[in-house]
Structures are given as structure tokens and as C-alpha cells.
Design a protein around this nucleic acid. Structure first.
Lengths: 336, 336
DNA sequence: CTCCCCCGTCGAAGCGCTTCGACTGTCTGG
DNA sequence: CCAGACAGTCGAAGCGCTTCGACGGGGGAG
């Protein structure tokens, strides 16, 4: 284990000089800097993270709290996590992975122990129990997702309201008059996950504006549950020609069911999905979709947090604009 | 920020006593312990991680290196990562998330800086470039996946050879004589990812023993690529009545194709998948499958690593036994 | 009754780094 | 030609914790 002192001795300078070379907080002559850098390389020196954290009271670590639940959007979570980790590295931070398991305690532990300089919370619920703690501990934090009350908080999320609107507008523009929404599992709505409700909002208000008839049904996902949901929808609204799906696990079953009933996509029925791009592209029909910009969200979250840690930038809500990509699953409404 | 010294003062004892209460490394009288614990609670004390790491040269952090690539088994990776994080917590460790991006450098950085006490590497390739470094740095580590040379390394993985064998034996037992394997993308085989080759091994040797005819074809996944692969297979071996699929992205397309061709599952054709349980259950036919025990792997990896860090246990290769679950996609071979 | 040992506690010495103040020159402007 | 500014370097004081050796006192063994 090579130490700063050894590097200093090897380079013939004092320890503080080496420290300043490393941090750049004071000017150093070119020759000294080179000598020091050479010694660092030759000795294979790596600063000790603990000592650094102790002396500077900055750990250069960002905590990322991921949900324990794995019933939703797992690949998206993963993609966000990876984006967070790689973006953090470009800013000189490492990422500590916390699971939701510990819940609010994790916030206390991290804030108290100086393990991390700030945290990013994923899967934030409308009235998340971690928020009060976050506010009172003055822990620099960024949320991915949107709680009910955002005062004093920094949040990053997809603009789900606009997403819903975009889907309806797309279908309305193609002449569809009766559209059904296959939503997330009922539990997701009961949990008051913000994004599901905001999407619904957007869908409904756009439907109102375009004079579209909209029917929303939560759906557990999986083949059987989707079959039941679709049957009910078609029973209630036989003229339905457009589907908006916001539930990965219902996408493929829906397509299979339509196929089975002899309804051609997109000739008879159009389908628009809100889902990760991968799902849209890999489905048995290439889906017109609004994708979840996972990487963007991760990147933005880190950048907001780093800005905070540097004393730049304040509380802010960043809503990323949705983008609808037209693929093979949507087309003009059939003429009756 | 409450410190040890403040707790000590509040409790009327010396700092070292508080430290010993916390670590349990020396015996403490019951009354003193209670006084100290009370002070800790009242002041809301949390030990400073940096100081602790510096003084003890143990960070109580485990580094987890996940692949940057997101083309494979993403939910499984996530599940492993979460299992690692939660298991680590039960042993008093936190988890640092490293992406493959930094590659071997990350190993050097973590080992050198004392950021983590040990590491877990996922997605290990047969001749992984991180391995030499790992060996020479004497960094306590556990691999998830199996490299070509395991000397001096601790590894945890599913027994993919047995997995392959299990699939073939299941189909052979049902009377199937011609079985096709739809494998991972060609790139996976070119990359010499161990698990793909070991599965193939198991499949082949079991086929030999049971006198089964086996045809293996890599497949990119997705609807179109799978269609091409399946067409070729049925062209070459029209009598194929069994499929083994080891590629999440080919599962649903395969089922759709079979349905489309009027081949009923499982009456005409049996399908066995090697995939995460979620995929098997959510598919449009509930799939007979060997699932990847993600949680198990994560848990085992952490436990092996913790054992190492405690000076217990040495190098070892743990292969978890596969379990085949019979669901609705496999049945007796049709009589000709 | 004495010796020794162990239990419970304390004080002090670091762990490796950052950072502040101080010092020495060198340069610039008046 | 001198005051002041500034670049470049050093020494020393911690940051909050662990851990080692030491010490007093009570109990068991001889």
C-alpha cells in the first residue's frame, strides 16, 4: 500500500505538495508537477479513499436507491442504474447501491455516516415515506419520479402527462374514435405511483380535446389476465380500434389475442405502447411507442446531483419530453 | 454531525470504551454498555465511515461489477445485483456498483484505494482480462460465471452443463427423437461466454447418451431473426418435435411462429426454455423451463466473499444444481 | 494470605489525507 | 528602488475512529 508520504519522498517534495498536485487547489510549477506525477506512476500510487473522506469530509460517492420490488420495468431500472454509474464516474464519483429494503433508515444511515455525499432515489411514490427525512436531513438528493409535493426537492422524470397526450393525439390524428388503455397492474394505481396517474391524466385530457372516447382498464399482465381485460374491453366498447398499452407484461399477450381473433394490426386495430424501446422493437409486431428514456434520466439525475454538490443549481423539476416513434403497429382507423 | 467523542462525554466514559461497545472486541460491563447505547440513541450517533475505514483499513464495502452491455439477461443481472445488495447488508456490508466500462482499471482502482474490501464480478468471460489483475493483486473476489481457468479463484454459477443435460433428458423421456436448440446470438458464442458453451456441452452429451438427434443454431432473437432460424431448422430437420430455447428474445417469437404454422404446443411440438422464471411464466404458453437462480447466485457470491474476508473458506467453485419445472409447453412426442 | 490473572476501562498513538497559515523568492507598478 | 502582490512550497494541525498497552481491582488458586 503506497501512501502519499512515500510519493512525496520519492519525488523529493512535501506531502502537501503532492496533495495539491492531485487536487489542483493551488498552483504548482510544471517541473514539480511532472516529478510528482512520475513518482505516482512509478510507485503505482492510489489515494486512500477513507483517509480522503475523513480529511475532506467528501466521500465522492453517490448513493443510488433502487426499489426492491422487481415487478415493474426491471430493464429500465437497470439501464438507469448503469447510466447513473457511468455518468457518475465521469464526474469522479462512485455509486453505492442501496435497495429499498432498508427504506427510510437507509437515508438516515447514509446521511449520518458520510458514506455518500448525496443520493438518487428511484421509484418515488406520490407520498414517499423517505421524503420527510430527506427534507429535514438536508441531504443533497435527486429523485427519479415525481412525488405529490416537490417543494424543496429536485426531480427528474419523463413527462408522463405529455406522454399520455401524445399517444391519444397520434391515434386521434389517424382517425381513431374509440381507444382503450390497458394500464399497469391495479396495485400500481393503488400504490399511487405518480407516473401511472399522470399518464392517465394526459390521456384523458387529450381525449377530451380531440373528442375521443377513452376506456381505461388496469391489467395485471400475463396471458390470462390480459385475455380477461381485453375481452371486457371489447365487450363494453366493440368499436374500439385503438389500444394504448402501458404495461410491458401485457404487450405480447395483447398482440397474440388480437391475432387470434383475426384482428389485423395495424389494419383493423392500432396499438401504441408506453414501454422501453427494447420491448417495442422486439415485440412480434414492431410497436409504435413512446419509450422511457432510461439513460437520459440516469444522466440527468447525476448531473443535477453533482451540480448541487458543487453548490451550483437549486431545486428543480426536470420533465423530459416524450418522443413517439411510429413503427408498424399503428395506422389509419378502418373505415366503417 | 455527532462524533464518538461526544457520545463518550455524554455517557461519561472514554472514547475507546464507546468504540469497544460498538465493535464488541473487548468485554464491557452491562451497565456501561447500556449507558453508552442510550447516549448513542439519544444523540442519534452514526459512526463516520471514512474514519472507520482509515483506522481499521476495512471499508465494509463490497464492489459489484456489472456488465455494461445490456443485450442479455438484464432482469437476471438486476435480480442478482439486488440479491447481492440485500445479502451484503445482512452481513454489514454495503455495495459499490461498478460498470464494466472501466474494465480492468476498476479492479486496480478499487484494490488500490481501499474503496472496497472485496469484489464480485458478474458476466465473467472464459478468458476474462480482469482475471490476471485479480490474481496478482490478491484482491478477495468472487466470480459469478465460470472462466476457463479457475485456479486460485472462487466462482459461483449455475451448472449449465447439467442444465443442458436436464433439458435433453426431459425431452428424451417424453419420447422426442429430434430436438433443435435455439441458442444465444452468435456474438455470445464468439465472445466465448462460458455458460453458452457449457450448456451446449451438456445438451450434446446427453443427446449422445439418449440417442437423440440434436441440431444447434445460434439466433439473434427478435421476430424476424427467429423466423429465419426456425425456418432453416424445420427445413433441415422436418421431424423436429422438441425445441430447447436459450435466448429470452427468441421465446415469444418462436411460440408465435409455431402457432402460425398450426403446430400446437405441446401436442405437436414441445418447448423447453432456459430462462428466468418470470419469462417462463409470463410467456403466451406457460413454459417448461430451467430457470436461472439469480437470487441464489447473488446470495452465494456474497456469502463466499464474506467468508473470505473473515479468513474462513478458500477458493472453491460452487455450481448450483439446475431445476427443471414442467409447465404447459412440453408433453409426449406425437406418435407418427 | 499472597500471587496471578482476567475483567473492564482509559489514554495515547496513529491511520493517510487535506488544508491553513507561513515562508521565500520573483515580478510589477509607482 | 521599494512596497506589495503573487506563485510555489512546506510544516503542522487535525478529520473521527481503532487498537495497543497499561492499570486498578476483584476473585480464584495455591
Amino acid at each position: 500500500m503506497v501512501t502519499l508520504a512515500e510519493v512525496a519522498q520519492h519525488a523529493g517534495v512535501s506531502a502537501s505538495t503532492v496533495s495539491y498536485v492531485l487536487s489542483g487547489k493551488r498552483s504548482i510549477s510544471a517541473t514539480t508537477r511532472q516529478r510528482v506525477e512520475r513518482s505516482i506512476r512509478e510507485l503505482g500510487y492510489h489515494p486512500n479513499a477513507g483517509a480522503r473522506a475523513l480529511a475532506s469530509s467528501r466521500s465522492n460517492v453517490i448513493a443510488l436507491m433502487v426499489p426492491l420490488r422487481t415487478d415493474m420495468y426491471v430493464p429500465v431500472m437497470m439501464e438507469i442504474a448503469i447510466a447513473v454509474a457511468t455518468t457518475a464516474r465521469t464526474h469522479g464519483y462512485d455509486v453505492l447501491l442501496l435497495t429499498g429494503e432498508e427504506g427510510p433508515d437507509a437515508v438516515r444511515r447514509v446521511a449520518g455516516s458520510g458514506l455518500a455525499d448525496g443520493m438518487i432515489l428511484m421509484d418515488v411514490e406520490l407520498d414517499d415515506e423517505r421524503l420527510p427525512l430527506l427534507r429535514e436531513s438536508a441531504q443533497p438528493a435527486v429523485l427519479i419520479g415525481l412525488p405529490a409535493d416537490t417543494t424543496g426537492l429536485t426531480c427528474v422524470d419523463l413527462d408522463f402527462r405529455a406522454t399520455g397526450a401524445l399517444c391519444v393525439e397520434h391515434l386521434a390524428g389517424l382517425g381513431h374514435r374509440d381507444v382503450a388503455v390497458i394500464g399497469e397492474a391495479p396495485a400500481v394505481y393503488e400504490r399511487h405511483t405518480g407516473f401511472a396517474e399522470r399518464t392517465l391524466d394526459g390521456l384523458r385530457s387529450a381525449a377530451r380535446e380531440t373528442g375521443l372516447r377513452l376506456l381505461h382498464r388496469p391489467c395485471e399482465g400475463g396471458y390470462d389476465a390480459t385475455a380477461v381485460t381485453v375481452a371486457r374491453i371489447l365487450d363494453e366498447r366493440p368499436d374500439t380500434t385503438g389500444f394504448v398499452v402501458q404495461n410491458e407484461a401485457a404487450v405480447e399477450p395483447l398482440l397474440a389475442l388480437l391475432r387470434q381473433q383475426g384482428r389485423a394490426v395495424p389494419e383493423d386495430v392500432s396499438v401504441v405502447a408506453v414501454c422501453p424501446e427494447q420491448v417495442a422493437v422486439q415485440a412480434s409486431v414492431r410497436l409504435t411507442s413512446v419509450s422511457l428514456p432510461a439513460q437520459e434520466m440516469g444522466r440527468h439525475a447525476v448531473e443535477q446531483l453533482v451540480a448541487k454538490l458543487d453548490g451550483r443549481g437549486g431545486d428543480e423539476v426536470v420533465l423530459l419530453p416524450p418522443e413517439l416513434t411510429v413503427r408498424a403497429s399503428s395506422g389509419p382507423a378502418p373505415v366503417r
